Amino acid sequence: MEIYQLRTFVAVALQGHLTQAAELLHLSQPAVTAQIKALEEELGIALFERYPGGVQLTEAGKLLLPDAQRILALSRDMLHRARGMSGEPKGKLRIGTIGVPGRLRLGPLLARLRQRYPLISVQTHHAISGVVLNDVRKKVLDGGFYLGRNPYQNLNTMVLSELRFCVAMPADWAKVYAEADWKALGQADWLGLSQFTSLSSITQELWREHNVAPNKVGEFDEEATLVEMLRAGIGLSILAERTAQRFAADGSIALWRGGETVIAAPLQFVYPAEREADPLICMLRDTLREVWELG
């Protein structure tokens, strides 16, 4: 069964005449007759009854006409959709992600990309911030989220928001350190951070600012791990304010000076500078601006 046969079937049914249907389809009458005959043979039923003045649908033809019309409508929709896609960007985007997906607005971003650019496929690669930065620099990734200040001139950045951080501590340390000064904090144990995390550079900056050289306990690379270490009573750490407030609310950790902001850092999206005019990167930047309401 071919689409052109169904188109001829519908045209003859609506016109009620082979010659008029042939004119409408820009075919000869013998060609129309041959297509109807071939369709009837494939279906194994007669679709029309012939009369001197024209043709009329059989009962079977009346039942099958709506099906043929639906198939033709779907084929037209498919054709229009394909033609509409011909100018759309195509390809694959590899995006590096960090931390908590909700903090990155990853769901809305991927949903908007899928809705607007159906020919784009997206792969996400979760890692710590420093790894994402290096993978974008080495072109392993097309772009990625990064927390901190971009140190590379060959990477361009979009600042999405600013994250604020506070000092968190084990719950039973609150009596000693909740209102302590920086000199006292500097004498306490702190959770060490992997050099590849942005939190590492942020923490180092904070310690330099307050002339603190604390004893670092271990080396950790995920926010969730830091929270577990805090709850286990191992040492102090800085945490993103929203995370810190959430866990302080149930009493599993405590916050220095009620969660006072001690340092802030930009959450950015980084991508290769040489791809500034790349249509895929332009599309991605535009979508990020909308999702993050950057104007």
Rank of each mutant, 00 (worst) to 15 (best):
M1L: 13
Y4F: 15
A11S: 10
G16F: 07
A21I: 09
A22P: 12
H26P: 15
S28M: 12
Q29V: 15
P30D: 09
A31L: 14
L39A: 10
E41V: 10
L43T: 11
G44W: 08
A46W: 08
A46S: 11
L47S: 05
F48P: 07
E49P: 11
E49K: 14
G54R: 01
L57V: 09
E59D: 15
E59Y: 11
A60S: 12
G61L: 03
L64Q: 05
L64W: 06
L65S: 05
A68L: 02
A68I: 04
R70N: 12
H80G: 11
L93T: 00
R94H: 01
I95G: 00
G96Y: 00
G96T: 01
V100K: 09
V100C: 12
L109A: 02
L110R: 06
A111I: 11
R112L: 08
Q115H: 14
Y117G: 06
L119D: 15
T124G: 00
G130W: 02
V131Q: 00
D135M: 02
V136R: 00
L141G: 01
Y146V: 08
G148E: 10
R149G: 14
P151S: 14
P151G: 15
P151M: 13
N154K: 14
N156M: 15
V159Q: 15
E162M: 12
E162L: 12
L163F: 07
R164I: 09
R164N: 09
C166S: 03
C166G: 03
C166F: 00
P170E: 02
A178Y: 06
K183V: 07
A184N: 12
A188N: 05
W190I: 03
L191F: 03
Q195E: 12
F196H: 06
S200C: 12
S200L: 07
S201R: 05
I202S: 01
I202G: 02
I202C: 04
E205W: 06
L206E: 02
W207G: 01
W207V: 04
N211H: 07
N211M: 06
V212H: 03
V217Q: 01
G218H: 02
G218L: 01
E222I: 09
E223D: 09
E223R: 02
A224I: 05
E228Q: 15
E228S: 15
L230E: 03
G233C: 08
I234S: 05
I234H: 07
S237E: 04
I238K: 00
L239Q: 01
E241H: 09
T243Y: 04
Q245T: 15
Q245G: 11
F247C: 09
A248Y: 04
A249P: 11
G251Q: 06
R257V: 04
R257H: 12
E260S: 10
T261L: 05
V262T: 00
P266C: 14
Y271L: 07
Y271H: 04
A277V: 13
C282E: 12
L284V: 05
L284Q: 01
R285I: 09
V291P: 01
E293D: 14
L294V: 13
L294D: 08
